[in-house]
Design a binder for these strands. Structure first.
Lengths: 204, 204
DNA sequence: GTTGTAAGATACCGACCGGTAAACTAGTAA
DNA sequence: TTACTAGTTTACCGGTCGGTATCTTACAAC
């Protein structure tokens, strides 16, 4: 019954792209509508606020794009340390592509948005946090697996994962601020130091 | 000649406080004026835009507050590793105080602002970056000094400083997003791992 | 005290922003 | 073919925003 539409998805895509490129606060509903080719009346038919749309956009992007990618990179069929290494390498490469396309390194949308709006929109903050924690969990299992193989020293895997993730996001954010890939190039070797890899065990 | 006023400083203080607590994009000139107790006409007498004021506010805060603090904590009269350790400890404590006062961990203003506006205001981006780099330099000299004492392994001190700084800011930003001090508690020990401290040389 | 000047106050403008109401349109199921 | 419904369009409202022009006030030097 009734007609079908992909306006909802177009709004999500437009919102994520604009917010990622600029920032949450500076992007207006009008701008999102224009980019999506949707009239404002339709916007309010689907969503009740910008924050509401942003939540949907983040979650949809995770399900459709990010999660499959993470699942692939952190596949259990890959040796744990190699997962982490290729993850960091591919992150560098993805940001390099963005820099070429947008003229700017854009970093991690959840992290940027989370830091920006954490004092203003609780739903949006919680959504960003939730996605960040899902990512930390990939790190954690990889670290746990590496420890089981004796490739990494003892210590709480969750704590190590959080630490590695802080290093990762911190580097990514700095790369964004300075629009310089350098911060991502040195990341793999820095990560190995943080994790305390046993030099004699890195090669199987 | 003419009358004197501290309206300029009041505007800087109000701007920094509001932007730090909320975000750059969401804070209006009207709001800053109201908080500072300054009429908008006067605002435009002193500054030509919000970005202009923000640049002045960041720089003034650095000179008046941050720099003296960093100079003290990273004083050459203190052993290098102790500088870093007390820096991280005091950062934790300062953020704990903020959490009590504001109900929120606010993190590092330069980092938050930098990440938010880097694609929108080049002057403001450059200012934030400049201050961040000044902070990295404190890390770098401490690391260099520690290496000279044989307390830290070899390797480019600047690279190590950037790495430590990424870990630091990444943790701080996560603490802000999740409003949880936990990310700052584990920081000292994580930092030691990143730097590759020699266990047998940590105590002089 | 007069005069020059730094600073403050007021009032206003046009643009845009978030949000709403209501009429309209295209499919779809019966 | 009709009736229903999901989606679309248009037009509008009140408020706020960035920005400006103008008049006034306080002070300091002479």
């Amino acid at each position: 019954m009734g007609r079908k539409s992909d306006a909802k998805e177009r709004l999500q895509d437009a919102a994520l792209e604009l917010i990622w490129e600029r920032s949450y606060g500076v992007v207006t509903i009008d701008a999102i509508c224009e980019k999506a080719g949707v009239k404002k009346g339709s916007f309010y038919y689907f969503y009740e606020s910008k924050a509401d749309l942003a939540v949907a956009a983040l979650e949809a992007d995770w399900q459709a794009n990010a999660k499959p990618w993470w699942d692939n990179v952190f596949s259990a069929s890959v040796p744990p340390m190699e997962r982490i290494r290729t993850f960091l390498q591919m992150t560098h490469d993805k940001q390099a592509v963005m820099q070429k396309e947008h003229g700017q390194i854009l970093g991690c949308p959840c992290f940027s948005i989370g830091s920006e709006i954490c004092t203003q929109s609780e739903v949006l903050r919680a959504t960003a946090q939730e996605i960040l924690q899902r990512q930390i969990r990939y790190f954690e299992t990889a670290i746990r697996d590496a420890q089981a193989r004796g490739e990494i020293g003892e210590g709480d895997p969750n704590a190590k994962a959080k630490c590695l993730y802080a290093l990762f996001e911190g580097s990514l954010a700095q790369a964004r601020i300075q629009n310089d890939l350098e911060f991502l190039r040195t990341l793999p070797s820095s990560a190995m130091e943080v994790l305390g890899v046993r030099k004699d065990a890195t090669v199987a």
